[in-house]
Amino acid sequence: MSLVSLDEVHKYYGENHVLKGVDLRVNAGEVVSIIGRSGSGKSTLLRCLNGLEEYQQGAVIVDNQSVENDDYKLRLLSRSVGMVFQNFNLFPHMTVGENVMLATKLVLKKSVTESRQLAEELLAKVGLADKFDAYPGNLSGGQQQRVAIARSLAMSPKVLLCDEITSALDPELVGEVLKVLEQLKEEGMTLILVTHEMNFARDVGDRVVFMNQGKVWETGPSDEVFANPQTDELKSFLAAVR
């Protein structure tokens, strides 16, 4: 049984048909990169996996839970699915440590000591042990994004969704964030990333999904897809981004 599965998923924004029957399976431990032009539906697809977007037809199953528009079910789902955003979305009025601790305290009902210990471990893991008491506003973009990753990991999700998490970063800060992702992959974390980092998708990702016109246009193991694109659309896309 796949960890994540989408069957014939359709999504409309009013008249606009954004996802036109998307099928996708992701197994535990896989790193899947979703690439494609803007407007191809990649972010929407990702956001359907944790209920941030509703879909109108089809089925999305993540960690044996059906993703439906139901507050209670989505809260349960949030323990299995973590998400990291392009704009970090850290809580600016809280310290880095509080950002990471809050969900374990409120949602998993862990004690403050336990939450704090976990937060310290996770921050150490992303290389920010010394920033526990800093405020997000005083950190660089790359550091903020690593805090956001630590914050998601605090819920010990089974799959981490990354929505263009390096797109808002200065070029020299991209590396430190990607390094954390590589480390997560080594630990066996399932990652689904919408990304423009083609090198990362090729070198670290197991599989690539090329979205075009609201459909999974082409998919396959990363090295093959990049070396041998089958469709004209993917060929022209790869030519354009290189």
Partner: peptide
């Protein structure tokens, strides 16, 4: 407040009341 604050809370599994109390109202 940026919409992302609400979204981050949803993905972390906060209830509406928790989101208001800890994230939205203080800011």
């Amino acid at each position: 407040l940026p919409k992302g604050q609400w979204e981050a809370c949803r993905t972390l599994g906060f209830t509406y009341m928790q989101t208001m109390r800890y994230i939205i109202v203080p800011q």
